Simulated assay, not measured.
Amino acid sequence: MTNDARKTAEAGRRSAARIIDEALGFVYPAALRAAVTAGVADHLTDGPRTPSDLAKATGTDARSLHRVLRLLATRGLFEEDGEGRFHLTETGAALRSDAPVSVRSAVLMITDRTFWLPAGEMTRCVEQGTSAFDQIFGMPFFDYFEGNADTTAIFHDGMAAMSDAENQPIADAYSFPPSATVVDVGGGHGGLLQAALRNTPGLQGILYDQPHVLAGHRLDTPDLAGRWTLAEGDFFTSAPPGDIYLLKRILHDWDDAQSRTILRNCREAMAPGGRVLVIDAVIPQDNAPHQGKTLDLLMMASLVGRERTEQEFEALFTEAGLRLTRVIPTGTVLSIVEGEAAEEM
């Protein structure tokens, strides 16, 4: 065999090994979900423990739990020492339910069957150009939630947990006018609005969502007394009057026509000189890793929406009577896409 032939063969073997590794990648989030469901991180707060001790504390099988933790340790969430005990690392600390910024609920949401099963049917999305969710669950994503209270709770708790690490950096990235009224459209439990209000004394806020979501809001704190109100409604129908409209992780759930409706409702309701702030991943036009590219496929599999590029946001804004003014990075995977009213609707 010539040197060139050997190099070609070796490159082929490296390619094969890499692709097999990639194909096995889905096992890791499955293991992560198992560890989170068992609450392993909470039982390591006071120090390392053996799989046997952890199994007794969590009501799991020691040998199986050890195998799960061994895999998770390869990416630094846990660490196995020379005595066979597992430690919770600094990287894995946010798995604790009592962590200052806990992602436990977010992991349970992302790996829930409502996302997991459609992702496994992505071939169907590619072949048919539609979400796999309807064919698996018999109805669209949000219709399914209406009849499944447990799933709805997992989703809203997960979204709140996912947002907790993002809200303060996003609020810090934008200078809100002190006398403005900010409307958090589909704002869930109000974490972002809370951060914005705390950053800017004098700012007023409206948390706008459906009644069952607003029931879990976090705005009722002494330092924010008198500076916020709740508004029940449907963002496909209308929006409350205000100056600045926050749409965090909203438009990526919906197709372009539905997103235009939401934006138009904000455009019609906002005061002169107002702004719409779409807070979503903005997909870069390169081959670099970006969490938004992964989230985009999650949207494709389970919903009807997508993550968008700056050019796609600009087109969406124009069609909704808005003009994109700037894109502001936040230090998170999300950016603030700011728009103002165009001269003509």
Rank of each mutant, 00 (worst) to 15 (best):
A94S: 14
R326G: 11
T229V: 14
T91P: 06
G186K: 01
A195K: 07
L197A: 02
A17R: 09
R33D: 05
F133W: 02
L193W: 02
L334M: 10
A93V: 08
L77Q: 02
R67H: 08
W254Y: 08
L207E: 00
L207V: 01
L316E: 05
R49F: 03
S179I: 08
P201K: 03
E343I: 07
T74D: 09
R198V: 00
V337P: 01
Q285W: 10
T181P: 11
V107I: 15
P284S: 13
R18T: 09
G205M: 01
E83Y: 11
D280Q: 04
P211L: 06
D172I: 07
R124F: 11
L108W: 05
S52G: 10
I283C: 03
D255Q: 11
L88C: 10
Y144G: 06
A171T: 12
A257T: 12
T89S: 11
L193C: 06
L32S: 07
D81A: 04
N167F: 02
F78R: 01
D42V: 04
A180S: 09
I110H: 06
L246Q: 01
F133I: 01
V337E: 04
T332E: 09
T8Y: 13
A320E: 05
A161N: 10
P211D: 12
L207F: 00
G216P: 01
P284M: 11
V276C: 08
K56T: 13
A35M: 11
V213Y: 00
P241D: 12
E146H: 15
